[in-house]
Amino acid sequence: MIRSMTGFSRQIVEIASETVTIEIKSVNNRYLDIVVKMPDDFSFIEEEIKSVVRKSVKRGRIDIKLKWKNNLGSSGQEINKELLIHLVNQSRLVAEELNMDAPTNIDRLLLVNGVVTDKKVVIEENFIKESIISSLKTGLKEFNSMRFDEGQRLKEDIEYRLNVIRELLAGIKDSQNTVVEEYREKLGQRVSKLKTEGLEFDESRLLSEIALFAERCSITEEIVRLESHLIEFVKTVNTGDSVGRKLDFLLQEINREVNTIGSKANNYNIAKIVVDIKGEAEKIREQIQNIE
């Protein structure tokens, strides 16, 4: 089953006094690009995270964001006494040099960055890694489920438009049978007019001209190749692999055959149908840009 390249998942895991939120979201991208954002203290699990994601996702830009929240609240704060004492001593020295009274209120000093900090609970790295990776795998299942559901909707729309193209192609095949005959009639009318004006015309040349026209405007090969591409497109859509690039290539081939048909057919009805087919192909192209 095909998968969309867009998806989202959020998981929350408790690790000691920390609450960790893991967000996974993705957007379209030609290749696989994994971006992980997390606090520097936990960067040791970044490569492990990327390795797990690579096993589950083949294409797209994948953003993994880890947010950490300390649950200790105010009771989880502590004063850096060494830094506070240093600041008090420095303020006294400055006061003596300037012949001023040294400040006795330390409330403002407590606002200095680094004086009051959150307590850090020591957690083993292996425990952190196991908890994060386990939650990540759960998130990836939810993430992929969303991508599968979206992929199914894309598949249904693509198959509908492929059926429309087949119906339009049937109209081209019907019109193809009348192209040469219409040309024969028009050419015959011109020849008849020339004869009424007393001009002679070689009948064998007339037949040669009709045969040359029939060969020049023949679109049988293009129709056969187009039908083959449509069959292969359906097969590819129904495979379980990462098929976005192959579908894009097949659509290019479909467009190439349709353009050739339009340029060779030399018929108004066929030209009109070609425009309709190209319109449906463009809608398919927009859809497959989102397929992994």
Score class of each variant (00 low, 15 high):
I2H: 07
I2G: 03
S4A: 15
G7I: 07
R10M: 13
V13R: 07
V13W: 01
S17T: 14
V20E: 02
T21L: 04
I22E: 10
I24Q: 10
S26P: 03
N28W: 10
R30H: 11
L32H: 07
L32Q: 05
L32A: 08
D33E: 15
I34Y: 02
V35K: 14
K37G: 09
P39V: 04
E46T: 11
I49K: 07
K55I: 02
K55M: 10
S56W: 08
S56D: 04
K58I: 13
K65N: 09
L66G: 03
K67H: 05
K67C: 06
S74W: 06
S75Y: 08
K81H: 07
E82P: 01
L84V: 13
H86S: 12
L87D: 09
N89R: 11
Q90N: 05
S91W: 04
L93C: 00
E97K: 15
N99M: 10
M100T: 08
A102F: 05
T104K: 13
I106S: 04
L111K: 13
N113Q: 12
T117N: 15
D118P: 00
V121G: 01
V122Y: 01
V122K: 12
I123P: 01
E125Q: 14
L136D: 06
K137M: 14
K137Q: 15
R147G: 04
F148H: 06
E150Q: 13
E150N: 06
Q152D: 10
K155Y: 13
I158G: 00
I158P: 04
Y160S: 12
R161M: 07
R166H: 05
R166G: 00
A170Y: 07
G171R: 10
D174G: 03
T178W: 00
V179D: 03
E181S: 11
R184Y: 02
K186Y: 03
G188R: 14
V191G: 00
V191T: 01
S192T: 03
K195N: 08
E197D: 09
E197M: 15
G198Y: 13
E209I: 13
I210C: 02
A211R: 04
L212W: 02
L212A: 15
F213Q: 09
F213H: 07
A214R: 11
E215K: 12
E215S: 13
R216L: 05
E221C: 06
L226R: 02
E227L: 11
S228L: 15
S228N: 15
E232Q: 15
N238D: 14
G240T: 14
G244R: 01
Q252W: 08
Q252Y: 06
N259D: 11
T260W: 09
T260M: 11
K264Y: 13
N267I: 06
Y268N: 07
N269C: 07
I270A: 08
D276M: 11
I277H: 06
K278R: 10
E280K: 01
A281V: 14
A281M: 13
N290A: 11
I291T: 07
